[in-house]
Design a protein around this nucleic acid. Structure first.
Length: 296
DNA sequence: AAGAACTCCTGTTGGC
DNA sequence: TGCCAACAGGAGTTCT
């Protein structure tokens, strides 16, 4: 489900509810998500105060007052729901609630000191959580080797060119590779390549000279990635199928998609006249305009 | 060793 | 109407 803009939207929804709050009670309703939940998960969280809530790529990180950090990844279908103090618990056995949440997939519930509830729900269970000392984060398996943060200052035409130089893998695959740039997913890669006028099957190395210097396309692509992500964050992410904010409201960037999920539709570029095509790369759908994004 | 394919899981959708 | 294959925002593991 969530790419960087959706995760950032979730973070902004959780922060006011969780920051400074004590995890008064924690419910763990199953032993695992994608991976087993950490050893003694409930015991290690209960009574801890949340001192910070940050994001790195598609990960959420809650800093706890004992020096540990709770790492949370939403996978494809993970979502958080914040419920105000006094909200009655969901009906036992209820299948589906008014905001389209499959209640049987509520896996972890944080009961906060304020009386509010924060529930992690994940239908496909590709999400995961981990708990480790804050000091070990950078060297942990989650973050060691992770690529640059696309909304940080590191992303530039120079850096992108250096990362992609000599690569024969298609641009689409290189942009999805979290070891290079961390946080992009299928939607925003499609949208960025469209705006940059680059064919998704072009070799990633074509944006650089053989020595790793940026060509014009590298500067354009770096700039466009920022723009697309900034716009999507401002729009509260994209809601397809089941993404919702922590308060149940919806993102609306999906209305601004130019190519994603628009196979067969005419290109939106004035006077273009091309059609949006779909192809499969590494098992994932790619959408692009046959005319605006020529093969070379 | 890079790049592609397969895998985890459940729910929805579209074609017959 | 029903059935079922294809597909879904991710990414670790296994192949070629």
């Amino acid at each position: 489900m969530p790419e960087l803009p959706e995760v950032e939207t979730v973070r902004r929804g959780l922060e006011p509810a969780m920051l400074g709050q004590v995890l008064a009670r924690v419910e763990q309703r199953r032993p695992d998500l994608r991976f087993p939940l950490p050893e003694h998960f409930v015991e290690r969280l209960t009574g801890r105060r949340v001192e910070g809530l940050s994001r790195r790529a598609k990960y959420l990180i809650a800093d706890l007052d004992d020096g540990e950090a709770l790492i949370m990844h939403l996978g494809m279908s993970g979502r958080f729901v914040v419920e105000a103090p006094g909200t009655p618990p969901t009906e036992p056995g209820a299948y589906y609630n008014e905001i389209g949440r499959h209640l049987q997939h509520d896996h972890v519930v944080f009961h906060l000191g304020s009386g509010a509830r924060v529930t992690y729900n994940d239908v496909r269970r590709f999400g995961f959580m981990d708990l480790l000392p804050r000091a070990d984060l950078e060297t942990s398996k989650h973050f060691a080797g992770m690529g640059i943060e696309p909304l940080g200052n590191e992303l530039s035409g120079e850096v992108l060119a250096r990362l992609f130089a000599g690569k024969l893998a298609p641009l689409k695959a290189a942009l999805l590779d979290q070891r290079l740039v961390a946080g992009l997913g299928n939607i925003y890669v499609c949208e960025a390549l469209f705006r940059a006028g680059l064919h998704p099957e072009a070799a990633a190395g074509t944006i650089a000279t053989p020595t790793g210097r940026p060509r014009e396309a590298a500067h354009a692509l770096a700039q466009i990635i920022r723009e697309v992500l900034d716009e999507a964050v401002a729009a509260g992410g994209s809601t397809l199928r089941d993404f919702a904010h922590a308060d149940g409201s919806l993102g609306y960037f999906q209305h601004r998609f130019k190519v994603y999920d628009r196979e067969g539709e005419p290109c939106v570029t004035p006077g273009c006249g091309g059609l949006v095509k779909r192809l499969v790369q590494s098992g994932r759908s790619t959408f692009y305009c046959e005319s605006c994004q020529p093969k070379r």
